[in-house]
Amino acid sequence: MKTIDEMLHLALLTPDEHRQISHWIAQASSPDEILKMPPPLWRAVERASAVMGVDDDLMRPPALDDGGLVCG
């Protein structure tokens, strides 16, 4: 939900899209139910995600040195 809220804050979603998407996610009982979101709402999320670079973030390898992680 934080990402959806950020999308609203950045004006990448309309207040109505935000409300509908938030409601859909809240009532979904599983990830599979979220995937059944109506196509217009998915398109809105995809547009906002592209602007925010969400896919790029998900494809970036994790920074293993973050937070002082010591391996071994």
Rank of each mutant, 00 (worst) to 15 (best):
D16R: 12
V70M: 05
A26F: 08
K2T: 15
L58P: 05
G68C: 03
P15F: 08
D66S: 11
M7G: 09
L10R: 12
I25N: 00
I4C: 06
R43V: 14
D65G: 13
V51M: 02
A44H: 07
M37S: 04
I4V: 15
P38D: 02
P31K: 09
G53I: 07
P38K: 02
S29A: 14
P61Y: 02
K36M: 15
T3E: 14
Q20W: 08
P38A: 04
S30H: 03
P62M: 10
I25R: 04
P62K: 07
P31I: 15
S29C: 11
D56A: 15
A44S: 07
A48E: 06
M7C: 03
R43W: 10
A50D: 08
D65S: 14
C71G: 03
V51N: 00
A28K: 01
P61T: 05
P62N: 04
G53V: 05
V54D: 01
V70A: 04
P39H: 08
W24N: 03
D66F: 14
C71S: 05
G53K: 03
L8K: 09
M59A: 14
L58W: 08
S29G: 13
V51C: 01
R60Q: 14
I4M: 07
T3S: 12
D57F: 15
G68K: 00
Q27N: 00
K2Q: 15
L35R: 12
M1H: 15
V54R: 02
D56E: 14
P62D: 02
H9R: 13
V54W: 04
L35N: 11
I21E: 00
Q20E: 14
H9P: 00
M59R: 12
M59H: 10
A63M: 13
E33L: 11
G72H: 08
L58V: 12
A28Y: 05
L10I: 00
T14I: 01
L12W: 05
I25Y: 04
